[in-house]
Amino acid sequence: MHAPAIETENLTKEYPHGFLNLKKKTSLEGLNMQVDEGEIFGFIGPNGAGKTTAIKLLMRLIFPTAGSARILGKPISDIEMHRDVGYLPEQPFFYDYLTAEELLDYFARIHDLTASDRKERVQQMLKKVGLETAGKIQLRKYSKGMLQRVGMAQAILHDPKVVILDEPMSGLDPVGRREVRDIILALKREGKTVMFSTHILSDAEMLCDRVGVIVGGKLRGVGAPEQLVDVKTQSMEIFFELTGQSTAPLLAKATRTGDRYRLQVPEAELYGAIEQVRAAGARILSVTPVRATLEEFFMNLVGADGAQAAAVEVSGK
């Protein structure tokens, strides 16, 4: 049986703060999770939820207060583990006096690639991220999106088995986001394990085999996106057109855009509602089931966490 690609056990990070560092702020609390080999795992949560903290702990950029983690079966303290891991930091910034080619060559040297391998890999990666014509330009002249692409290139330069990306779509235009999504999907086809953090839920829904939702430093749910949300149809949406006025009480609940209305009703009340809409003289354009989205699941968690935080504040704890 294969060890999980990424495994954390009670991973916790507290930061001292306040006068004489006597207070402690918990950024990540007892993170237990597993990412299997070959899957795309999305780490989602609002800003400040602990996503970057967890990733930085895995990369040994910060050290845990408690708990442990393993990547490809090796403890994260083992420097050899880094040979098989690629990492894209959040909002990456690189040595701006170097060109993209020089930067990638520098990192390739760190990975002990031979001179011929380096040359080949650097050109391959630049092509992969769409920077083949900008390879000889100094990074100080790069836009944020271009830096993000260089970041992707350096993360996968050494053909790692596990790729960890911190907010890879951040700062990218729609074309750039599409390209990063394509790279992530290509990595999956090559059998790599990809873990990425994001707060763009549509990206997570589109790409991930599984997602972990982290809010307030705690992991609140892990599973396939469609498992996490309630797949049961909860309500139905009636989309209709109505010229003129109507006093039907049901229509007051509809959302209006010009002459068109959207009305959500519980599934059990659908036929009664259709009758009322028709009686009001409206022309029904469509009737569709409304599915809960990952976003709703996420917002519910964030809302609950906010309410809990407010309650704690009120109680003075």
């Binding site: 990369m59 040994r60 950029l61 420097i79 050899e80 880094h82 040979r83 891991v85 990492y87 894209l88 930091p89 909002q91 990456p92 910034f93 690189f94 040595y95 990192f107 760190i110 990975h111 970041g151 350096q154 993360a155 050494h158």
Partner: peptide, 14 residues
């Protein structure tokens, strides 16, 4: 400050 060492220290560099 510039976080340029993040990508480097995530590589096999002690």
């Amino acid at each position: 400050d510039k976080r340029t060492l993040y990508a480097l220290l995530a590589k096999p560099v002690r």
